[in-house]
Structures are given as structure tokens and as C-alpha cells.
Design a protein around this nucleic acid. Sequence first.
DNA 1: CGCTGTAGTTAGAAGCTATAACCAAGGCTC
DNA 2: GAGCCTTGGTTATAGCTTCTAACTACAGCG
Lengths: 217, 217
Amino acid sequence: MTDAGPTSRERYRAQVRAEIKQHAWEQIATAGVPALSLNAIAKQLGMSGPALYRYFASRDELITALIRDAYRSIADTVRAAYDDGADLAGLARVIRDWARSDPQRYFLIYGTPVPGYHAPDDTTAISFEVMAVLIEACGALGSEGPETPFDAHLGDHREWARGHPAPAAVLHRALAFWTRLHGVLSLELAGHFAGMLFDTDPLIDEEIAGLAPRARG
Amino acid sequence: MTDAGPTSRERYRAQVRAEIKQHAWEQIATAGVPALSLNAIAKQLGMSGPALYRYFASRDELITALIRDAYRSIADTVRAAYDDGADLAGLARVIRDWARSDPQRYFLIYGTPVPGYHAPDDTTAISFEVMAVLIEACGALGSEGPETPFDAHLGDHREWARGHPAPAAVLHRALAFWTRLHGVLSLELAGHFAGMLFDTDPLIDEEIAGLAPRARG
DNA sequence: CGCTGTAGTTAGAAGCTATAACCAAGGCTC
DNA sequence: GAGCCTTGGTTATAGCTTCTAACTACAGCG
């Protein structure tokens, strides 16, 4: 009992902040980030306008908190799946399920960037957690086959992988996993496949399966 | 001289509309779509507020016009490159150059969707122009190799390609070209490779080169 | 010359973010 | 327990936004 834990005020504050974020997610899911209104959230919570600024200093700070939570959520999801023994195909499946469960949350991370905005450092750290899992999962596939020029280039610039000691071909695969999955997923979620009545799951599966070493020789 | 051509009023109107869009593009490029302000544009043009509504009925209508122009621009760019003899690698190059020249314009088409918004029909028609070029360019690669299950699935659902008679494997390749290129490009333009000091061009080149028939067997 | 339609104006409603000033109540210290 | 001080809430207000309404002036056509 050296630390008395959160005080009742702290607990209340955390509770209200959570409720605010909850309503914010609902607004974003139904109308997108531009329509997010602090005023409307305050009314929904029964308090009037500026009271909300006691909990979030600005609209940007609220959105930043949402972005942080989104990163945390996908990183935990990917980590949990990997610890449960998921391979690359399995990781692709949990990520696409995560994205489809709330497309606007996915786009909050991977969608249109705001020119001025710079994500806080800790979110890039969380983002690397995901990349670390991908690299490990790609490493399980082995790395025979000749090294391409781009492999060598990546091997010389592995600061983006925090200097991860995996073979360059593995880094390349992790990167391609990310870009291929995002390519299909973001176009699908953005509705660019609307009117295209095919099933996107097999496309994702094939794109990911194509990352296996022999297919890249 | 059966048609007297545009009257001076029509020419003036078209001119002002063009100037409005010009300023809108500048605002979007520097601050993103959410910061687009009709009021600010009107002031920049020396007219006061509501005058602008004589030219665009609403903010949404202006944005829709910009979206239409963006689609028109990329379709013309791709078409011109193809007519100049560009292959898939060349098409990838012109598209990525087009996107990098104005990332926010690219994201206006392929970025975060607004939940309620539905693009007008003619833009999807323009979008198909691009797809038609991609399908033709992919057809030049030939289509030997076994047909995958997803190939067959695509062949049965070719309404998205307006019933284009290309072999299913070719349709598949055009689709993968689009998703792979968008995957790398959108992550790069969104800044998710910031801090990753490698060159993305070779990654795009390899992803596109990997579409060649023998690599998919 | 006169009429009509168009381009512009100002005023104003409703909404937003955000700040300022104020008030009530809960918890900590003495 | 009394008093103070932090915290959570209020209302008022500034300044911005989109957009409508009502009005004016002008340009072009018959």
C-alpha cells in the first residue's frame, strides 16, 4: 500500500475522458473526423460546451488521444495474434478484420495526412511494435534466394527497423507485407471497389502468399 | 458559325470559377481539405463572402468539382503516357510523379473517405478510363501460367472492368498493379516512411516487376 | 430605350472552437 | 473541525465558419 492508487478525482477524470472518447469514436465512425464536434459531445454528456476543455485542451488534443488509442489497439491485436501462433496469412486476417470493424479508425492512422500535423513520438514507437512483429513473422519464412539490389539498399538503411538484425530480404518482405495489405485494404475500405462485386479476401491472401521466398526469385 | 460560342458572361463565369478552384487547390495543398474556407477564397479574390456562392452552390459542390478535375487529370496523364508507349513500369512512374507533385490531390481521390459522401457517377466513369489503360498494358505481358482460383473468381465478376474481355489473369494483374502501387505510394505520401531513409522508387519498381506472369506461377 | 437576368453587396442565423470570468463543491492541511 | 485551494462546472463572448435572404447596380438583349 505504498501507493494509494488513483484518487477518486483521478478515477472520475479518467472515466469522463473515456466517455468523451467513446462519443468521439461514434461521431467519427458515422460522419468522419471533420464532423467531430466537441460541442455536440458535451451536449450528449449533459454538460455544456466549454466544460469539455477541462478534459482535453483542444480538438487536436482529443484527436491525438484517439490516434494514440488506435495505434495501441492495432499493436495489441497484432501482438496477441502472433503470440497465438498466427503466421503472415493469419496476421493479415486479424489486421483486415480490425480495419473493417471500424474503417474510420483505420483511416485515422493510415488515411489522408493533415499537412501540418506531426504525430507524437510515442505513436511512432507503437507503430514500430507492429513492424517488429511483422519482421519476426517474415523471418520464419526463411530467406533463401538471391539478394536483390533493393534488399541490399534496405540492409544499409535499417534505422526504420530500429536496427533489427534480420536479413535484408526479411526486412523487404515485412515492408512489402505492409504495403500490399494496406493497398488492398485501404482501397476496399474507401469504397473504390464498390460496384466491383468480387471478394477481396482471396486477393489479400494471394498478395500475402506471393511474399514467400521462392516467388520472389 | 451555327453556334456563337461562349458569351462574354459565360467566359467570365468560367474564368472566375477557375480562379476559385486555383485558390482552393493552394489552400488544400498547404493545409488540407478540412481547412478549405470559401470565405478566405472570396477575400483573396477581392470579393466578399457570399458572392462566391454564385459560382459554387456549396462547399461540397466546390470539393466535388475539385475531385472531378483530379480524376480528369490523372486519367489524362495515364492515357498520354500509355499512348507514348509506356509499359507498366512507365505507368507506375508517371502515376507516382503525378501523386508526388500534389499529395493532397492524390488523397482527395484515394484518401480517407467521408462516410456519407458518394462520388458522382461521371467520376467513376473517369476512374474506369484509368483501369482500362492498366488492363491493356497488363495484357501486353501475356498470360501464360496456370489460372488461380482468384483469377477464376475475377473472371466471373468482371462487371467492375465493364465486361472487358481480357483473360482473367490479366484482370488480376491490373488489379494488383493498382493495389500495390497505391499501397507503397499512399504510405509514402502520408509520411509513414518518414524516418525510413530508404528510396521508395526501387520498392515500387520491384512490386510492379513482380506482376510479370512467371513470378506468379 | 427599357426590361431582365446576373453579379455583387450587406445583414443575419446557426454552428463551431476557444478564452475569460465566475461560482460551487470536494479534499487537503493545519 | 475550520479554512483554503484545487477542480469541475457554469455563462458570456470573440472570432471564425457555411449559408440564406433581401437588396442594388450593371450588362446585354430585344
